[in-house]
Structure formats: C-alpha cells, structure tokens
C-alpha cells in the first residue's frame, strides 16, 4: 500500500508541475491571447538556472564549468527571474507584431535553446547534462515522508499561481489583458499601451514556467536536454485545451487529467496483456482526447465564465448605470 501511495505521490508531483506550466500558458493564451509555442524554453531556463546556482562547483571530470552552491530558495528565485528575462528578450521583437510571429519565434527559441543545451558543454554539461541537483530540506525531513513533503511544496506553488490567476480575473490589469485578447483595436482606442500589457503578461506567464522548471530540477535532481523537448509545450497545450483556457481551475484540472491519464495507461499492459502497443497508443490516445474535447467541449471541461456587464457591476458594487 505504501508503495502504491508513493507512486501516486510521484504522479501528483509531476501533475502539479504541469499545472504550474499550464497556469503560465493560461496567462499567455487564455487571458491575453498570446500564441506561445515555446513554453518549454522558459521551463528549461528555470530548471538550468536553479541547477547551476545551487550545485557545488564542478570537479575536473565534469563538463560544465559553473556551480555556485547557493541555497535552494535563491536558486528557485533565480530560475524564475531568468525565465522572466528571457521572456523580455523574446518579447521585444515579437510582441509588437501580430500573434503569428510570436508563435513562430517562440517555437524557434525553444529549439535553439535545446540545441544550445546539447552543445554548450561548459554551461549545461551538454548531452550528458547536470547531476546531483540538491533537494530542499533533504536532511531535515525524514526520508519516508520526503516525497509527500515535496508534493506539498509543489502544491503550494500551484496554489500561489492559482491565486494569482484568480486575482487576475477581477483585477483591472486582467481586464485589459482580456480586452487585448478579444479586440486589440478597441483596447488601443481606449488609450491602452497594448505592447506594454502584452509584455507584462508574457513575462508573468514565463516566470510561472520558470518556477515549474525550478521545481522540476529539484525533483528530478538531474537535467539533460532530452527532458526539454517540444512535447512538453504541446502536452501543456493539451492540458489547457482539455481543461479550459481562460480558467485557472481548468488549467489545473487539465494538467491533472493529462498526467494521470499518461501515467494510468502504464497499467494497461499488465491488465490486458497488450504489451508493446501501449506506449505507442498512449500518445495517440492523448491526441484522441484533444479531438474529443474540441468536438464536444470546445471550451474545455471548465470553460471560462463570461460575466455580463450587469453582473460585473453588481459584483463590484457599482450598482450599474
């Protein structure tokens, strides 16, 4: 029973990390309408930054040449900030243009970063990667409870991002973002500097992905470029589409469903003896899930809730017109 619990814990931890990714993407796409196909880039930047900040200085046999041995909270913070900086650099040339440009440039950036990770051995350890990333409070929390402790940490991070996303729904900032998404010209006509708002949203979402990456680094304890393929971006998109874009709860639900689904299918070969077909089927089934979701629940399981102007006023206690 304890073994089963341990596996469920690890599934939930991964699901939590994907939930943070999905919440970040929700700020981009769900709230602001930014077509970001390179989400994994921010995830990778967060992961590698915290790894490099917290591991011990490399020995002679290791390929990478940095390791600062800083405390883990500093590393995580560094990972979040670094992802934000990359978002600014990417946003400057692309966010002023129409959204297709961002889609193309962001997918390109993600691939460039991945090739960079594979080839810049001095920084990332190359294909061999970085090992021995520390785990927070490892010595203090008892071993058998450690996985639960880390799950708690991830869930706290999910809760933080969720709270932010909820707040975004009813804050003036969030309203501007949604107005940009729905009709940018109208937002411009109302005197909003849409570039600035898009940039802010882009950076916030990227920082969430950076946080997810940092949590992943301290969970996996080893980083190699194979962990940062485009499939992460697309799995996050699937989570958001199935869960419901524009709805923070939907993003979390989608991530939970997709990851549980991916992991639950690991048990099918045992149950039905289908053997080798299952790993291949798993990806196809994720695809089928998207098709089904788009056909029957195009707005996702938990759709964005559109509030009428009257209700909006009532909520704000304006009393309407």
């Amino acid at each position: 029973m304890l073994e089963q619990l341990s596996f469920v814990t690890s599934v939930l931890t991964v699901a939590g990390i994907y939930a943070i990714l999905a919440l970040g993407l929700n700020v981009h796409w769900g709230e602001t309408g930014l077509l970001n196909f390179g989400h994994v880039a921010f995830f990778a930047v967060g992961a590698y930054t915290t790894a490099l900040l917290t591991i011990a200085a490399p020995t002679a046999t290791q390929a990478y040449s940095f390791g600062f041995g800083l405390p883990i909270p500093v590393g995580i913070l560094g990972g979040i900030l670094a992802a934000g900086v990359v978002a600014v650099l990417l946003g400057v040339p692309t966010l002023q243009l129409s959204e297709e440009y961002l889609a193309i440039v962001s997918i390109g950036l993600a691939e460039i970063l991945r090739y960079g990770m594979m080839n810049e051995n001095w920084l990332t350890g190359g294909v061999a990667g970085i090992y021995g990333v520390g785990r927070p409070l490892r010595g203090i929390v008892p071993g058998e409870l450690y996985d639960l402790f880390y799950l708690g940490l991830v869930l706290a991070a999910v809760a933080l991002c969720w709270a932010y996303s909820r707040r975004l729904k009813r804050s003036p900032f969030g309203r501007v973002l949604r107005s940009i998404r729905d009709d940018e010209e109208a937002a411009v006509a109302l005197g909003k500097n849409t570039f600035q708002y898009r940039m802010q949203a882009f950076v916030v979402g990227a920082m969430m992905a950076g946080l997810a990456g940092a949590l992943w680094a301290h969970y996996a304890t080893a980083l190699t470029p194979t962990a940062f393929g485009a499939s992460i971006t697309f799995l996050t998109w699937v989570a958001l589409i199935v869960g419901g874009s524009g709805n923070a709860g939907g993003a979390i639900l989608g991530a939970g469903l997709i990851i549980s689904f991916r992991e639950a299918t690991r048990y099918l070969p045992d149950l039905y003896g289908l053997g080798d077909i299952i790993p291949t089927l798993r990806l196809m089934l994720v695809g089928v899930l998207v098709v089904v979701a788009i056909r029957y629940r195009p707005e996702g399981l938990l759709p964005e809730r559109n509030i009428s102007y009257a209700e909006y006023c009532r909520r704000l206690d304006y009393g309407g017109d």
Partner: peptide, 8 residues
C-alpha cells in the same frame, strides 16, 4: 528516450 518519461 526522454528524461521525464524515464523518471516516471
């Protein structure tokens, strides 16, 4: 051939 899947 992917680190994340291998970990799970």
């Amino acid at each position: 051939a992917n680190q994340q899947t291998a970990t799970s």
